[in-house]
Design a protein around this nucleic acid. Structure first.
Lengths: 159, 159
DNA sequence: CTTGAGATTGCAAACCAATTGTAGTAACCG
DNA sequence: CGGTTACTACAATTGGTTTGCAATCTCAAG
């Protein structure tokens, strides 16, 4: 987290992101409901990829059903509020992408810790794909590995 | 064994790949069974990512159970015979990677057609991840888009 | 502010890909 | 060839995700 940013500034920034996402909801003809606000807040405060199940846990005190989380996340993905990313085992995470820079992740295959890589070197390749005749081009890039901590505790193990 | 496919009819290159994969099986202490041979042949002849379900359909005349396909693919993945890749909706495909160059895919989000991109620009980034302390580093890169055919037939549609 | 249309939600049931338990079978080593 | 044990088939199960539907809530028109 940015150490130069006070707690108030962070909250203000989160508020701005929430407003922006809400605007996207309205603009796309969706209604702004309490479950959606709660889910958006959970996504924003996470500041990284999060499991559906974890979102549900975060908002469950507001009595938001798991099915609702699935439906909302599905809608958010279509609108472009969240992006899906993957674990190497195939399970999905979702990340809030409104007002954020494009980036990718390093995921520890052992403890599942997620780090961020700011660099993206594949934007040029997207143009190449576009030149091949594809439209609505996007990409997904994930790095996997065993982080230092896990490597130490696993030590001699073969994975 | 498939009576419609004699040894002479099998492509020589595919044969070599099969032998190589079988060697990897043995080397890792696995047994070489008929279902595994059948699944390997299906993977090799596909020459690209394929769904578990489709593998099963291909080998079903040999009476290979779906659970067996899952277990074998799981083993193949650990050994490094196949690699998992993803559709944007989160469903998994598996691709035979023995003796093949490293590459990535363009997947049409409409008809699911898969094309190959030979270039890989992220190998350098893997070193960067390695320098951050990660071990067993790998990555996964997929491009998504709507291919020319689909773009024409969908035309005015909003996706 | 009130109200009605229709989008959204909660709940429960259904769904389906993937996994697991187990008894029988087949691979492979000596 | 015979014994050990990894592997398979089959069926049952799991767990994540989706769906149907009645009740509820949003939002804009009046």
């Amino acid at each position: 987290m940015n150490p130069l940013m006070s707690k108030e500034e962070i909250n203000r920034d989160d508020d701005r992101l929430l407003e922006e996402a809400v605007a996207m909801l309205k603009k796309s003809g969706h209604r702004v409901t309490q479950p959606r606000i709660a889910i958006l807040k959970a996504l924003i405060s996470e500041k990284g990829p999060i499991k559906i199940e974890d979102i549900h846990r975060r908002v469950s005190d507001r009595n938001c059903d798991l099915a609702t989380v699935y439906r909302c996340i599905g809608a958010f993905e279509k609108i472009g509020i969240v992006r899906r990313c993957f674990f190497p085992d195939g399970s999905s995470l979702f990340e809030f992408i409104v007002g954020g820079d494009h980036h990718h992740h390093i995921i520890c295959t052992s403890c599942r810790k997620v780090e961020t890589i700011d660099v993206c070197v594949v934007d040029g390749l997207e143009r190449l794909v576009h030149n091949r005749g594809y439209r609505n081009v996007s990409h997904m890039l994930e790095f996997f590995g065993v982080c230092e901590n896990c490597a130490q505790s696993e030590d001699g193990k073969t994975d």
